[in-house]
């Protein structure tokens, strides 16, 4: 009988535990609300054939890059954080094939953007209507996908790629995969 009177305390304890844990992991940075887990991870990357940003150049076809470790980066000229990660992508381009997908962006805007901020991409595909983005589960750019030599998605990051992410997450991943 007395147990019934403990029940409210137990429920409150559970609730306080959950919220407290969530609060502290938010503060320590381990919980990032904006990071939705991607269902693509450990699955083959979607078939992607996009028109090339450079007119007349052949289509950007992801399957051509089988056998290499590829970084697919969704970006746009209207996306402010996308600017910040360009030097980082440039540094990654030494080790990986970095493919850009211009997401819902006018071709001339993308070109002006790449002239102003520099072009770190091996090749840039154009996704004018954002449909390719949807098949990849893109919900907010910049988003970056690491794809292994077999064409499977190893990792997805929503948000700016920074040094910490490269050194702590991306590098170990591609080094074990390659």
């Amino acid at each position: 009988m007395r147990f019934i009177f403990l029940l409210p305390l137990l429920i409150f304890g559970l609730l306080a535990g959950i919220t407290g844990f969530a609060l502290f992991s938010t503060l320590s940075g381990t919980r990032q609300v904006e990071q939705l887990p991607s269902v693509l991870v450990e699955r083959p990357a979607p078939d992607t054939r996009q028109p090339n940003l450079t007119e007349g150049a052949p289509e950007v076809d992801l399957s051509h890059y089988r056998g290499q470790i590829v970084l697919v980066n969704f970006f746009a000229s209207w996306c402010v954080p996308c600017r910040a990660e360009i030097p980082m992508l440039q540094s990654l381009a030494k080790d990986l094939t970095v493919i850009g997908i211009a997401y819902k962006d006018k071709v001339q805007d993308t070109k002006a953007f790449l002239t102003r901020f520099g072009n770190p991409y091996h090749v840039v595909g154009v996704d004018l209507d954002g449909r390719t983005g949807i098949t990849w589960g893109v919900y907010g750019i910049p988003e970056t996908y690491l794809i292994d030599a077999q064409g499977n998605v190893l990792f997805r990051h929503a948000g700016v790629v920074d040094k910490v992410l490269i050194e702590n997450t991306l590098r170990p991943l591609w080094e074990t995969a390659g």
Binding site: R2, F5, L6, P8, L9, A16, T19
Partner: peptide, 24 residues
């Protein structure tokens, strides 16, 4: 967040302990 969590723990936790003890 931490401050309110602390208030919450004291303001709700203690009365519920009191309740578990004296409620019956």
């Amino acid at each position: 967040g931490i401050f309110i969590l602390a208030i919450l723990l004291l303001a709700v936790g203690l009365p519920l302990v009191l309740y578990a003890w004296r409620g019956p």
